[in-house]
């Protein structure tokens, strides 16, 4: 077991403490399992896992680059019965960092010229129907919409 602790504040809210690259998968599975419980026909669980992982990796690398006691992330998960869409809000309390400003990778380049990395946020943008960033009260807030089918 690692140091991540998860506390459900309500049925759709999770507070993750001490987020690190080596405990991200635990959180990813926790949220996607919850989504599947909320709406069992949800078939894009893998896409949701990918979206959450890529965002958490970015938070670890850029919002919380230094090891400190906090490293807290709050994730809320809501489901709109009408549109059958999930809404994710991922909040961290780290350094000001907008992942959506990252340069889009050039997918036309040959193998030799293709840079290593930079694909994570590109995948998030491709898989989510909507992604928005805001910075409020020293918090990085990413809001996403993910269609269930």
């Amino acid at each position: 077991m690692n140091s991540a602790t998860n506390t459900a504040i309500n049925s759709h809210k999770f507070v993750i403490n001490n987020i690190e690259l080596n405990n991200i998968s635990e959180t990813v599975t926790l949220i996607s399992s919850k989504a599947k419980t909320i709406y069992p026909p949800f078939i894009r669980g893998g896409d949701m896992e990918l979206i959450i992982e890529e965002i958490l990796v970015n938070i670890c690398n850029y919002a919380y680059p230094m090891i400190d006691s906090h490293r807290q992330v709050e994730i809320s998960l809501d489901f709109d019965e009408k549109t059958k869409s999930f809404f994710l809000k991922i909040v961290d309390f780290g350094l000001d960092f907008n992942p959506l400003l990252k340069e889009e990778p050039n997918l036309e380049l040959d193998l030799e010229d293709r840079p290593i990395g930079g694909l994570g946020i590109h995948l998030v943008k491709k898989l989510a129907s909507k992604v928005e960033y805001s910075r409020k009260n020293y918090q990085n807030i990413l809001s996403l919409e993910i269609h269930s089918t």
Binding site: V57, L111, R114, I116, G120
Partner: peptide, 19 residues
């Protein structure tokens, strides 16, 4: 069963190194 961008890097690096 699952791959993220962290995993994709491994394949990209391998393709480059072997080439």
């Amino acid at each position: 069963t699952y791959v993220s961008s962290a995993g994709l890097r491994i394949f990209l690096v391998a393709a480059k190194k072997i080439k």
